[in-house]
C-alpha cells in the first residue's frame, strides 16, 4: 500500500498530465491515494460521485485530450460494472479509429481477492476477464513490483489495469523495501531458481509459493516464476523455465473455468516440453465467496493445495 502510494506521488509529481479520480480519493480512503489531494489540489485529484460507469468513460475522454488519468476502484467487483467502459470503449478506440487516438488510462483496483469477511460481492479477483479481453493487466506480488509496475502502467499509452491483491495491501509480511525502480510491463521475474518443477505464482500467491518451495527444499528444487504482468504474458520467460524443469504448477486466484491458470496450462501443453501433466491451483468453477471465514478460506487457493499439486505432479 505504501509502495503504491509512493508510486502515485512520484508519477503525479513527474508528469502534470497525470490525474487521479475515483471515490474517496480526496481523503485517501484506500490508503493508496492518501496525501495526494493536499499536495496536488482539486485540479488533479477528483472526488467522484458513485457513478463508476460515467467516471470511467470520463477518464477515456480526458485521456483522448492528452491527460493520463488514474481511476481508482476500491472494490474489485466494480470492474464488472465498468466492463463496457473499459473493454468496449477505452480499449477499442485505438484500433477502431485506425490509430488516430490513444487512451492512456490506468485502472487501479486497490484490493483484489478475498478480504476475509467481505463475502460475495467484494471478494473476487477479476483480472483474468480483463486479460482475456486484451486489456494490459498487472498483478504485483511484492511491494517493489507494485511500485514499479504501477508507474509503468501510468506511463503506458494504452489502458492498463493494476490489481493490488488485498492480502498484500493489508499484509506486513513482505516489508516495503522502499525500492523505487520502474518495472517494465510484460516482463516476468524468476524469484527462485530450481530444476525440478516450475511454479507460476500470481499476486499474493508469490508469497505462498516461496513459503511452500522453502518447506520442500530438502526434497525438491522448485523454480518460481512471477509473471507480474498477466497480459501480455511473458511466454518466453516461462518457456525457458518449463523447458528446463519439464513440470508446471500454476497458482492463481481466478476461477478454474477460463481463468489465467487455464491459459498458462493450455499454452504449456501446446508448446512446452513437459514430462508430466501440468496442474492448476485456483478457485473452484464459478466461485462465490461465502461470508463465514472457514468457507471463505476453503475456496481460496493456499499453501496446502499448492503442496498437494506439487506432490502429485512430482509423484512424491
Amino acid at each position: 500500500m505504501h509502495a503504491m502510494n509512493r508510486a502515485l506521488h512520484a508519477e503525479m509529481a513527474a508528469d502534470e498530465d497525470v490525474l487521479l479520480l475515483g471515490e474517496d480519493v480526496g481523503v485517501g480512503a484506500s490508503g493508496v491515494t492518501s496525501g495526494l489531494l493536499p499536495r496536488f489540489g482539486r485540479e488533479r485529484v477528483l472526488d467522484t460521485p458513485l457513478s463508476e460507469q460515467a467516471f470511467t468513460s470520463f477518464g477515456t475522454g480526458a485521456a483522448m485530450m492528452g491527460k493520463k488519468p488514474v481511476i481508482e476502484f476500491q472494490i474489485s467487483t466494480l470492474i464488472y460494472l465498468v466492463f463496457e467502459q473499459i473493454v468496449n470503449q477505452a480499449h477499442k478506440f485505438s484500433l477502431m479509429t485506425g490509430g488516430q487516438v490513444s487512451v492512456p488510462v490506468t485502472y487501479l483496483v486497490a484490493g483484489s481477492g478475498s478480504r476475509s469477511g467481505w463475502a460475495g460481492q467484494h471478494s473476487d479477483s477479476p483480472y483474468s476477464l480483463l486479460a482475456q479481453a486484451g486489456i494490459k493487466t498487472v498483478v504485483p506480488g511484492t511491494p517493489a513490483d507494485a511500485y514499479g509496475l504501477f508507474r509503468s502502467a501510468i506511463r503506458d499509452p494504452d489502458p492498463v489495469a493494476v490489481f493490488a491483491p488485498s492480502a498484500l495491501l493489508e499484509s506486513t509480511a513482505v516489508p516495503d523495501s522502499g525500492a523505487e525502480e520502474i518495472v517494465p510491463l510484460g516482463e516476468a521475474n524468476v524469484l527462485r531458481e530450481g530444476g525440478d518443477l516450475t511454479v507460476v505464482a500470481v499476486g499474493q500467491h508469490v508469497g505462498t509459493a516461496l513459503e511452500v518451495a522453502d518447506s520442500l527444499s530438502d526434497r525438491v528444487d522448485i523454480e518460481i516464476v512471477d509473471p507480474r504482468t498477466v497480459y501480455p504474458f511473458d511466454w518466453d520467460c516461462l518457456r525457458k523455465s518449463v523447458n528446463k524443469t519439464g513440470r508446471l504448477v500454476v497458482i492463481d486466484d481466478s476461477n478454474r473455468m477460463c481463468g489465467l491458470g487455464a491459459e498458462i496450462v493450455a499454452t504449456a501443453a501446446e508448446e512446452f516440453d513437459l514430462v508430466a501433466p501440468p496442474r492448476r491451483v485456483c478457485r473452484p468453477d464459478g466461485t462465490v465467496i461465502p461470508y463465514a471465514l472457514a468457507l471463505d478460506k476453503a475456496l481460496v487457493p493456499g499453501p496446502e493445495q499448492l503442496m498437494q499439486a506439487i506432490s502429485a505432479t512430482l509423484k512424491l
Binding site: Q53, A54, F55, T56, S57, F58, G59, T60, G61, A62, A63, M64, M65, G66, K67, P69, E84, Q85, N88, Q89, F93, M96, T97, Q100, V101
Partner: peptide
C-alpha cells in the same frame, strides 16, 4: 471520425458519448 476536427469518436453504444464528452469538457 476525423479526430483532427475535434470529433471524439462516433460510438456504436447508445448513450456512451456523454461521459466521454464530459471528460473532454473537463480538460477543455
Amino acid at each position: 471520425a476525423d479526430m483532427k476536427l475535434g470529433i471524439l469518436g462516433a460510438n456504436g453504444i447508445v448513450g456512451a458519448g456523454g461521459a466521454i464528452g464530459s471528460g473532454a469538457a473537463w480538460v477543455a
